[in-house]
Amino acid sequence: MRVIEARLITDAVARLSIRANTCLPDNVKAAIARARREEDWPPAREILDRIIENGAIEGGVPICQDTGMACVFLEVGQDVHILGGLAQAVDEGVRRGYTEGYLRKSVVSDPLERVNSGDNTPAMLYTELVPGDRVTITVAPKGFGSENMSRIAMLKPSDGLDGVRRFILDTVEQAGPNPCPPIVVGVGIGGTFDKCALLAKKALLRDMDAPSPLPFYAGLERELLEKINALGIGPQGFGGRTTALAVHIETMPTHIAGLPCAVNINCHVARHATEVL
């Protein structure tokens, strides 16, 4: 049994909140640069150039002013004992990171009363038990311009692959310019209503250039990316090839009566940062 003090988790969450919001991962930068090379519509190229310029700004300025809700994913080794309150430690990390990093406080404590919590807490916390004695922490700040364009459908088994394709393409079409294209499309297929949505969110954590390890779904990802980039929405919705940078699909078993499909859209500021304790 390994003992990890909760304050170490606080420190890591604070660091990761700042890093994720101020440094775009290299694989995201590379995906945007590739899209710029492949874009053939001049107005779209101009916008991609500005986006690249924005991503290169240093000095701790957040890439986007919507520094998001802090989605925190913890993989806790089952041979670890955490000394102190875990949820409190994570929230304290968010509080500290968002204050010390000059990040925006974008959380209201009650969805209808709508009073700002003042420190961006609580985190949207997911914990998972895994083998081993380590703790892997990922902070994925999620902006709501793109979150608001996300959808879930409880499709029928008879809707099949075509129904899944249609729902994904229709979600991107309806979102149009709103989620700040070029976007990243996270898809969950299967599970229950709740698990399906979580799969879609987790799909956004995958490296931009990493296809699904399942050959069928890797092929479906390629096909959907091509279809989305034939819609013509383009960067910022002003027209062009580059509507999406990647489509990532995650799946799990589901019920004989169901075919849940969730689409979680992310903008081109596809942020997340990870540390292992």
Partner: peptide
């Protein structure tokens, strides 16, 4: 007017 969404550091 549209400003570039997700380019907040540049616009600042």
């Amino acid at each position: 007017f549209g400003a570039i969404g997700g380019a907040g550091a540049l616009l600042a």
